[in-house]
């Protein structure tokens, strides 16, 4: 499995090329800098969230609370900076800590009380939204200050928007953790066979707890980036993003059964999702068709992951 996922990622990346070619032919505007920058925003946001959300997914769970966590984080960071007067760097730090604690709480209920992850995180999605409403007083708040905070997302470095660097850093770190650390090995092992992993010295509860904590943390980072980019925060800011993240993960080959997954794959998945959405826009297909496309893509990707649609590739018997 050391080489195989890279092969999967390559195959995915190769699919991107004809997709780009088709989009370029269909719409000359596709390959313009302006348009690609647009695509990059959504890729960054989905990529940042996926880099953490992949952990619960590989252990066989799911984190549906990431949209609410991101929105709440935006509101909280604004609260710290502009209403409590805390400098922007500690504010961001505190916000990420809070996001991680939210994840830790989810992880605690999933791992220790053994309640299905989707129930726990879906409920969390709802109450976090409520908390976000309370903190923001139900309003859409504009963030105009401090300038360095705004520059996090709006600034450029070497001609590229800053969030790209943040996203790439997170993806590389996450991929490194997944591929090159003991914890990454344990995450994969728990997803593959919890019982065998336990008998080999892995503590599945601890692995789950940390996985959800990471997911909460990256959601908070995503929320901060989004706040800085859009310069406004509100409770429903990132609602529905969990579906895009899930789609990116599924396209990237992350499987809830089997302990497989790759952050780089998820990133390519995120790019694909963004291309599809952008392509539909460029081709003047109304926005309305986006959710239809996303839903169809998920089901197709699931079927592909399960070995359907590709003749003679049922490699693993599921006995």
């Amino acid at each position: 499995m050391n080489k195989k996922p890279i092969a999967t990622e390559l195959r995915l990346a190769i699919v991107l090329v004809p997709l780009m070619a088709v989009l370029t032919i269909l719409s000359p505007r596709f390959l313009t800098l302006d348009n690609l920058t647009n695509v990059v925003w959504s890729v960054c946001f989905i990529g940042i969230l996926s880099s953490g959300a992949i952990y619960p997914r590989i252990t066989g769970g799911i984190d549906l609370s990431l949209g609410s966590t991101a929105a709440l984080s935006g509101i909280v960071v604004d609260l710290f900076m502009n209403r409590m007067g805390i400098p922007w760097i500690p504010s961001i730090f505190l916000t990420v800590v809070i996001g991680s604690l939210v994840g830790l709480f989810n992880g605690f209920i999933v791992a220790k009380i053994k309640i299905p992850a989707f129930v726990v995180t879906m409920a969390a999605k709802t109450y976090l939204y409520g908390i976000a409403l309370v903190v923001s007083q139900g309003a859409m708040l504009a963030i105009l200050e401090p300038k360095p905070f705004i520059l996090i997302s709006t600034g450029r470095f070497l001609g590229l928007p800053n969030p790209i660097y943040i996203m790439v850093a997170l993806v590389i770190t996450s991929q490194f953790v997944l591929r090159r650390t003991a914890f990454g090995r344990q995450v994969m092992a728990v997803g593959s066979n919890e019982v065998a992993a336990r008998l080999s010295g892995v503590d599945p509860d601890r692995v789950r707890l940390i996985s959800y904590t990471i997911s909460g943390g990256t959601s908070a980072v995503g929320g901060v980036i989004l706040a800085s980019l859009t310069q406004q925060v509100f409770a429903a800011a990132a609602s529905g993003i969990e579906l895009d993240v899930m789609t990116a993960l599924v396209i990237g080959g992350t499987s809830a059964v089997g302990g497989r997954g790759s952050v780089v794959g998820a990133l390519i998945g995120a790019i694909m999702v963004a291309f599809i959405i952008n392509g539909l826009n460029l081709l003047n297909v109304p926005n309305l068709y986006q959710p239809i496309a996303i839903g169809t893509v998920i089901i197709l990707a699931l079927l592909l992951n399960e070995g359907y649609l590709v003749p003679k590739r049922r490699t693993l018997s599921r006995a």
Partner: peptide, 14 residues
Amino acid sequence: SPWIQPIAIGGIIV
């Protein structure tokens, strides 16, 4: 405050 509603519903489920 009606904003309590989602907190109540999510909380009740958990």
